[in-house]
């Protein structure tokens, strides 16, 4: 591809104390592409997500956004670049209702004399519409998050990422822990999102979850990228073998 990648990570290293979670990883994402980032638990996938989202900086390595070298100092900077996350271990904030969660950090305000106040009506409408778009039926954007099932919560997170994600959606284990039916639903969303031309990174330890939708697949193993291929070039079974460490690669 002759395009400029939206984000390019070069030789990224990250330590947690003595544990080296990423041992010099290169990773890039082109516009409009769906990338499956797969690997066993502990491979370093979530760590890579957090570096792309600016949660913490890498200990070594460089990050380029659309060709320019950057330091991603906080999630709000990454969000400004159009990267939207659905994190693995954290979810929505249960004390805030749906629309407050949806717009957290990106609240819409309107000016009234000198002060800016939340435009609640607009945010409620947009929340309903955005969730409706992706196929999530929410009766009332004022509902408690506590009233939603695990799958519904995940759907709201994905709907939020999709709504705000100008450039890349980064979904860390979006279907882990969901029932079979909920998983199918989320995979449906992913197909819809793919049609819109937004880039998506789907992180998973189960290749079957992404094989259908992915264009390209990268495999992490204990902090190292051990393989990367276009989907056409391999079967899911081969990828499973690589993840399990049965097959050594190119």
């Amino acid at each position: 591809m002759s395009q400029v990648p939206i984000i390019e990570l070069k030789n990224i290293r990250k330590f947690y104390g003595k544990i080296e979670a990423l041992k010099g990883v290169d990773f890039l994402i082109y516009p409009g592409e769906i990338v499956g980032l797969v690997g066993d638990n502990g491979a370093g996938k979530s760590t890579l997500v957090k570096i792309m989202m600016g949660v913490f900086p890498p200990d070594a390595g460089e990050i380029f956004v659309e060709g320019k070298k950057v330091n991603l100092r906080s999630p709000s900077e990454s969000r400004k670049f159009g990267f939207e996350p659905v994190y693995q271990e954290t979810d929505l904030i249960s004390q805030l209702n749906i629309w407050r969660n949806f717009f957290l950090g990106k609240e819409i305000t309107k000016k009234f004399f000198i002060a800016k106040f939340l435009d609640k009506k607009k945010m409620r409408d947009i929340t309903s519409k955005a969730l409706d778009n992706i196929g999530i039926k929410i009766k009332n954007p004022d509902s408690d998050i506590m009233a939603l099932s695990g799958g519904e919560r995940r759907s709201v997170s994905i709907g939020r990422a999709w709504h705000f994600g100008g450039k890349i959606l980064i979904l860390d284990e979006p279907v882990t822990g969901l029932s079979v039916k909920e998983t199918e639903k989320v995979l449906e969303y992913l197909k819809k999102i793919k049609k819109t031309g937004c880039s998506v990174v789907i992180i998973t330890h189960n290749i079957y979850h992404v094989y259908d939708v992915a264009d390209r697949i990268a495999i992490l193993d204990r902090g190292t990228k051990v393989a990367e291929m276009r989907k056409e070039d391999c079967t899911p079974e081969e990828i499973m073998d690589i993840i399990r460490g049965k097959k050594k690669i190119v």
Binding site: R100, K116, L118
Partner: peptide
Amino acid sequence: ENTRFGNQIRACGGDKLNARFMGIN
């Protein structure tokens, strides 16, 4: 009730890690 500050304060009190991950300082 009606400002970004208020919304974000509530988020910090609810789950500060999550709030930080969504870009709240």
